[in-house]
Amino acid sequence: MADPIHQFQIVKLFTVAKLGGTEIAFTNSAAFMFTVVAAVSIFLIATTGERALVPGRLQSVSEITYEFVAGMLKDSAGEAGMKFFPFVFSLFVFVLIANLFGMIPFAFTVTSHIIVTFALAMLVFLTVTIYGFMRHGAHFLRVFVPSGVPMYVLPLVVLIELISFLSRPISHSVRLFANMLAGHITLKVFAGFVAGLLGAGAALAPLSILPLAMVVALTALEFLIAFLQAYVFAILTCIYLNDALHPGH
């Protein structure tokens, strides 16, 4: 049976430079990251070239994506949140297209590596924290003090809020990473069952239809999850940014 972990292997494509003892290599992961960037950029720029008053199909896709993210950000963080629009939009399309590229057979899923999702989550976390303190100074600390809480439970609530705030980058990144990882492993395992049963002789071969049906269903589910996790990642970013913009709950 094929190794379900093999698909997550980082493969060196060529060495870029050697810094001291560390080798900087261009890998399959890097190739997919830049493919995502290129695909997104080319699509958005090419489809909006006409600037048609009445959009065609492809221009509509670009416009809908724009309005989808803009609506998400405005709903969560208000009009003031729009200064982070390019950031949220980039995050959303990067995660979404990376997830969807991962659905192509033999493709590498950038977001199935914890370091990538953690880096993105940290970027959000640091943006929120730094912007929050820059904008509101010490008032940003009010984000840990919900209003209307009795004094005697306030220390506990503040502690909980602080822990939940600090654990955000972990939950934010692990959610995406674990979903992509688990989904791809499950797909591979069930696909492996198909191959295993087909190879196990004439008696067991017809049974391979069962894991095959499962693989088909899981593939559909994975496409849903690819979109949903990108959406969740972006909407959580919006909610966290709202804390930086309006810390007073």
Binding site: I24, T27, S29, A30, V37, E63, P86, S90, I115, A119
Partner: peptide, 28 residues
């Protein structure tokens, strides 16, 4: 693999952010 992934991710994301904020989003 973390160091190289972080490096390429940083480059790719900065490039994406730049392309989005300077080109694609203003156009839309």
């Amino acid at each position: 693999t973390f160091a190289s992934q972080l490096l390429w991710l940083a480059l790719a994301f900065v490039l994406l952010y730049w392309l989005m904020s300077r080109l694609a989003l203003p156009r839309i």
